[in-house]
């Protein structure tokens, strides 16, 4: 014990540097440096003859107040919140439900279910977007046939302002439900059997066992799933881009921060890219996601650590 204590008290022993160096070097060179270099542009604006002039936080002010930018930004932010809410309310509960079924030792063929249900997660978003665009396509009529079974009238789901975003969110849920499922499953099967047995012996129902015993124990995973969902959703781009293109139609109904950023930074059709405002949007995305992650780290995770100690 003392040995390890002294090892840890040394200021920057060489082995810590060895452990950290490869990751930090590759990551800094290929991610942080290029990203910061571009993010810097959010503090500049093109001057009279096209050269960049330092303008401080002016671009951020424009993004949040100017009629040209603010409605698009807040529209994308609102859509992104809806996108996130649908994932939290649909994807994660379904993932938890499937994981709790799959963690039961009584279910035969668990491994097969697990493998099959995870399959959509490994498909490329381009493929998923393409497949669903075909299925939801009024021309092919698949969605009409299937919804007809349930007495629901078919709609041009991806073409209506009211339905496009919820439907695309559900497509994303369809694809990614495997991730929370796997994470919850890993947490559930690591719960010691004795705890559950003890509860059963006390006459607890399966429902009771789940909510009173299992759920509190997998709370750290619930937190990780929530924060991963948050980060993933606020950085999402590909699915909307594949199905609705960067125009994120109809009438920007599916525009999320990722598509708004892409459209602005790289341009679209005749609209040339606007690197400075694009970088400003990326800067706002960074602030939003960072705020979410810090909130998680400093409230949820800290409380969990305290609980651990009490246990």
């Amino acid at each position: 014990m003392q040995r390890s204590g002294t090892t840890r008290r040394k200021p920057f022993p060489i082995h810590i540097i060895v452990f950290l160096a490869p990751a930090v070097i590759i990551y800094t060179a290929f991610m942080i440096f290029p990203l910061l270099d571009s993010l810097r542009l959010s503090l500049y604006a093109p001057g009279e003859s096209g050269e960049y002039v330092f303008v401080g936080l002016n671009n951020y002010q424009r993004l949040l107040t100017e009629p040209l930018w603010a409605p698009r930004f807040f529209g994308a932010l609102k859509n992104n919140l809806v996108f996130f809410a649908i994932h939290m309310l649909v994807q994660n509960p379904i993932g938890l439900f499937l994981a709790s079924l799959l963690s039961s030792q009584f279910i035969k063929g668990r491994a097969i279910y697990r493998t099959l249900i995870f399959t959509p997660t490994v498909l490329s978003v381009v493929l998923v977007g393409f497949i669903w665009r075909l299925i939801l396509n009024p021309l092919w009529g698949i969605s009409g046939d299937i919804l007809g079974l349930f007495g629901i009238e078919n709609q041009p789901w991806l073409g209506l302002e009211t339905t496009a975003l919820p439907v695309l969110s559900l497509v994303s849920v369809w694809q990614y439900v495997g991730i929370p499922m796997m994470l919850f499953l890993a947490a559930l099967i690591s719960i010691p059997d004795e705890l559950i047995e003890a509860a059963r012996v006390d006459g607890a129902t399966a429902w009771h066992v789940f909510w009173k015993i299992k759920f509190p124990l997998i709370l750290p995973t619930v937190g990780i799933v929530a924060v991963l969902t948050f980060v993933g959703n606020f950085n999402a781009f590909d699915l909307i881009y594949t199905t609705q293109r960067a125009t994120a139609g109809p009438n920007f109904a599916t525009d999320i921060l990722g598509t708004f950023f892409y459209r602005t930074f790289f341009g679209i059709q005749l609209q040339p890219g606007n690197p400075t405002m694009g970088a400003t949007i990326a800067g706002m995305m960074l602030l939003i996601i960072l705020a979410g992650v810090l909130l998680y780290l400093f409230t949820f995770q800290r409380r969990l650590l305290k609980m651990d100690i009490q246990l």
Partner: peptide, 15 residues
């Protein structure tokens, strides 16, 4: 076409 709000360019070509 019916549902034209969700009909894409390749769809119309196929149609």
């Amino acid at each position: 076409p019916p549902g034209y709000q969700a009909i894409s360019y390749p769809d119309s070509q196929n149609m």
